[in-house]
Deep mutational scan, measured.
Amino acid sequence: NQASVVANQLIPINTALTLVMMRSEVVTPVGIPAKDIPRLVSMQVNRAVPLGTTLMPDMVKGYA
């Protein structure tokens, strides 16, 4: 199973992502692939993302 990107903490709306905010985990449904973590750094979330939430492409500005 492919690992997805999961929030390692509460990420407030419009926050630029950093490595410490994200972890990889095998979850259902599948979200953004963990291999894309380096690409996500500095991108902003367009909503508040609670701890443990799988990041989906529509949550990150400029990803999709």
Rank of each mutant, 00 (worst) to 15 (best):
T28Q: 09
I37F: 03
T53F: 14
Q44D: 04
P57Y: 15
N8C: 12
V60I: 14
G31H: 01
M21K: 03
Q44R: 11
P57K: 08
R23A: 09
A16N: 05
A64F: 05
D36Q: 05
S42L: 11
T15Y: 12
V27P: 02
G52K: 04
V5Y: 02
L51G: 12
M22Y: 02
V60S: 01
S24C: 12
V20Y: 13
Y63H: 04
R47E: 08
V26M: 12
I11P: 01
I32S: 01
V45R: 00
P33E: 14
Y63Q: 03
G62A: 13
L19I: 05
L17G: 00
V5W: 02
A64Y: 04
I37D: 00
G52H: 14
L51H: 11
V5T: 10
I11D: 00
L51K: 09
T18D: 03
T53V: 11
E25A: 11
Y63P: 03
I11W: 02
S42Y: 10
R47N: 07
P50N: 12
V5F: 02
V20W: 10
Y63V: 03
V49Y: 02
V26R: 03
D36V: 05
Q44S: 11
G52R: 06
I37E: 03
L51I: 14
V49R: 03
Q44N: 05
S4Y: 03
V30S: 12
D36P: 00
R47M: 10
Q44P: 07
M56V: 11
K35C: 15
P38E: 12
V60Q: 00
L40F: 02
L19K: 05
Q9L: 10
T53L: 13
N8M: 10
V30I: 08
L10V: 13
L55V: 09
R47P: 02
P12H: 09
A7D: 00
T18M: 06
I11T: 02
T15H: 07
S4W: 02
N46L: 15
G31C: 03
A7H: 01
I32Q: 00
N8D: 13
N1F: 09
N1Y: 10
T28G: 06
D58W: 12
N14H: 10
V45N: 03
R23V: 05
I11E: 00
N14W: 11
I37C: 10
P33M: 11
V49W: 02
A64M: 08
L17I: 11
I11M: 06
P57R: 10
A64W: 05
V41C: 11
N14S: 07
M59V: 07
T15G: 05
T28L: 06
V27E: 02
L51E: 14
T15P: 01
A34V: 13
M56S: 11
S24F: 11
A64Q: 13
Y63I: 03
T15L: 06
K35H: 15
A3S: 11
A16G: 09
Q2R: 03
A34G: 12
T53N: 10
P38S: 13
V26K: 04
P50E: 07
Q2V: 14
L40Y: 03
G31R: 00
T28H: 06
S42N: 11
M59Q: 05
T54D: 01
P57G: 10
N46W: 13
Q9K: 11
T15W: 08
G52F: 07
G62Q: 09
L55K: 01
E25V: 05
I32F: 03
P50D: 15
S4F: 02
K35A: 15
N14I: 03
I11N: 00
S4I: 02
L55W: 01
S42K: 10
G52A: 09
P50M: 07
I32M: 03
D36F: 05
I13D: 11
M22H: 00
L55H: 01
L19W: 11
A64I: 13
L17Y: 01
N1V: 15
P33R: 05
V60L: 09
R23D: 04
T15D: 04
K61D: 06
P12T: 09
L10I: 12
S24E: 11
V30G: 10
R47D: 07
I37V: 11
N46H: 11
T54K: 04
R23C: 04
V5Q: 01
E25N: 06
N8Q: 12
T53I: 11
Q2M: 11
P12K: 08
M21H: 06
K61Y: 09
M56H: 09
G62M: 14
V41W: 04
N8P: 02
A64D: 09
V45K: 00
L40D: 00
N46D: 11
D36T: 04
V60W: 02
L51W: 14
T28K: 04
S4M: 02
V5D: 01
N1E: 15
N8T: 14
D58T: 06
A16E: 05
Y63E: 04
I32R: 01
L19P: 05
V27S: 06
M59F: 13
N1G: 15
V27C: 07
V30T: 12
V41M: 14
L17H: 00
M59D: 13
M43W: 11
A7L: 04
E25S: 06
M21D: 03
A48N: 10
P29V: 08
D36S: 06
S42F: 15
Q2K: 04
V45M: 08
V60F: 06
S4L: 01
N46S: 13
R39K: 14
I37N: 01
T28E: 15
L19Q: 05
I13W: 09
T54G: 03
V60D: 00
T54V: 10
Q44K: 14
A7T: 13
N1R: 03
S42V: 03
P12Q: 07
L10F: 12
D36E: 10
M56K: 07
Q9H: 06
P38G: 09
S24T: 09
L10M: 12
L51A: 13
T54C: 04
A64E: 12
I11A: 01
S4C: 04
M21G: 03
Q9E: 13
Q9P: 01
P33G: 06
P12I: 05
T15S: 07
P12Y: 12
V6C: 05
Q44A: 10
P12E: 14
R39P: 03
V27W: 03
T18N: 04
I11F: 01
G52C: 08
L17R: 00
Q2E: 15
V26P: 09
V45Y: 00
E25H: 07
L55R: 00
V5N: 02
L51R: 07
V26A: 14
A3Y: 12
V30M: 11
S42T: 14
T53D: 12
M21L: 07
A34I: 07
P57F: 14
G52L: 09
P33C: 15
P57T: 14
I11K: 01
A3L: 13
A34F: 09
S42W: 12
M56N: 07
K35Y: 15
L40C: 07
M43K: 05
A7C: 06
I11C: 03
G31S: 02
V20Q: 07
P12L: 10
R47Q: 08
L40I: 13
S4A: 03
V27L: 07
L10D: 09
T53M: 14
A16F: 11
V20S: 13
R39L: 14
I37A: 07
M56I: 07
I37S: 04
I13A: 07
Y63S: 03
T54W: 02
G62S: 14
L17S: 00
G52D: 14
L17E: 00
V41R: 04
T15E: 06
I37M: 11
Q2N: 12
A16K: 05
A16S: 09
L19E: 04
V30P: 12
S24R: 07
E25K: 05
I11S: 01
T15N: 04
V49C: 07
M43D: 03
Q44T: 11
I32N: 00
N14E: 09
Q44C: 10
T54H: 02
M43T: 04
V27R: 07
I13L: 09
A7M: 08
P29K: 06
S24Q: 14
T54L: 05
M43P: 00
D58G: 09
T15F: 13
N8G: 12
P29G: 04
M22N: 00
P33L: 13
T28M: 07
Q2Y: 15
L51M: 14
D58N: 11
A7Y: 02
M59W: 08
Q2T: 13
V5A: 09
N1D: 15
D58H: 13
V45A: 06
N46C: 15
T15R: 06
A16D: 06
P50V: 14
P57D: 08
V30R: 04
T53R: 10
K61R: 12
L17M: 12
V30Y: 15
V41D: 03
A3W: 14
A48T: 11
L40H: 00
L19M: 08
V41I: 10
E25T: 11
A16P: 13
N14M: 10
T54P: 07
R47F: 08
T15M: 08
G52Q: 04
A34H: 05
A34N: 07
P50K: 10
I32P: 01
M56D: 05
P33W: 11
P50C: 11
V41P: 03
G62P: 06
T18V: 05
M43Q: 05
Q9C: 08
